[in-house]
Design a protein around this nucleic acid. Structure first.
Lengths: 197, 197
DNA sequence: TAGTAATATGCAAATAATTGCATAACAACA
DNA sequence: TGTTGTTATGCAATTATTTGCATATTACTA
């Protein structure tokens, strides 16, 4: 009988990493797939990237596993939506995951790979890519700062439940700032490279 | 006949992103799969993560597509190794890739997802995760600075072909510095959170 | 001489993510 | 009334990545 409940529990656990990223977002508030996709695109984007297809798929699985519940909501002036909430089982799953070992950060960023080609291929293309990235960083930084001043002006006075979210935002701000400074330095050095290709 | 060469050319192009990351690394010097795996684990690691299985698989494909050549090398005191070099076709593939649109950076970092659980689950576990990350950043920063002082002490005097690699290193250094500062700030705030769970 | 660690390479199955569709409600504007 | 843009959700096929083995050489040390 112990064996049966052991198997039963195992069936409920999702190994997929996105699972927990979605569940943590639902800790703060109930959300639809569409809203989650937007959050992953903006505020969550600096530490987690996910497409809307991935998110809808995962939500469907989380629902089947009863880690979330869903309710259909009619809207006026917009299509209906499906709002997801965490279940107690979902919360317990998060509790266990927080205690588990933190997996290594995964990244793939073509920009830096392109940098390795400097002096071998078109430097102009690399410069364009850096400028593009510079624009992206500026936009992200402006957005993060707006969120900060609107919702996190006094970090020490925040309720405990919002301190972690603030710290994630702070990391995003610091990262964008550092990246912007780097873009400037990179462009200064890249203009000194002779044309190739 | 135009159609035939068109099809032929298409068959040579690998869509996989790792492809180009490996080819760029081979621009600098000939490398084995094992050496590539180590580079991806250390210096390249901050902008590109890849397992050795992934790397060996991809190298095999690049060899089949004739983007690289390989030679077996006997060593004394170590097992034999297989050294890969870029072909002209590989170089042309890189040239085309540099001109193509830069794909969006992809990340997944559980640490920040765990941060979202602060005030809901074990804060101690989150603190441990931040401390762990702090150690990682310290080690990476020390390594990057060592590489910098050993090989990139005078950036402006570098040959063009090494400027891009230097800039990637610089980005790594800046990122590690910013992350380390953030870890300290994060730990200061996290100790103010009451125990939960 | 047995065990551990580093060097070196790989296969196969399972899982996850991407790409390319596809649909539909509703608003605003031409 | 057709078009464009935003909101909203999803499927299916392909491609990429991870996980769990598996193997072998050589050095060092207990």
């Amino acid at each position: 009988m112990g064996a049966i409940s052991y198997i039963y529990l195992n069936l409920e656990i999702s190994g997929m990493a996105l699972t927990h990223a979605i569940l943590t977002a639902l800790l703060e508030e109930d959300l639809t797939g569409y809203e989650l996709a937007k959050q992953f695109d903006v505020s969550l984007g600096f530490f987690w990237t996910a497409s809307h297809q991935q998110i809808y798929q995962t939500l469907k699985r989380l629902y089947a596993e009863e880690l979330v519940t869903a309710r259909e909501v009619s809207q006026t002036g917009k299509p209906d939506k499906r709002v997801y909430s965490l279940t107690d089982s979902g919360r317990r799953s998060l509790d266990a995951w927080v205690l588990s070992e933190t997996k290594k950060r995964k990244v793939t960023d073509e920009l830096f790979a392109k940098l390795y080609t400097v002096g071998h291929s078109s430097t102009a293309a690399v410069i364009d890519a850096v400028i593009q990235r510079q624009h992206d960083h500026r936009e992200k930084l402006a957005l993060y700062r707006k969120i900060e001043s609107r919702s996190y002006a006094a970090p020490l006075k925040l309720p405990d439940q919002r301190k972690g979210v603030y710290l994630a935002l702070l990391a995003g701000i610091r990262q964008e700032e550092a990246s912007l400074l780097w873009c400037e330095d990179a462009l200064s050095l890249l203009v000194s490279v002779s044309q190739v290709g």
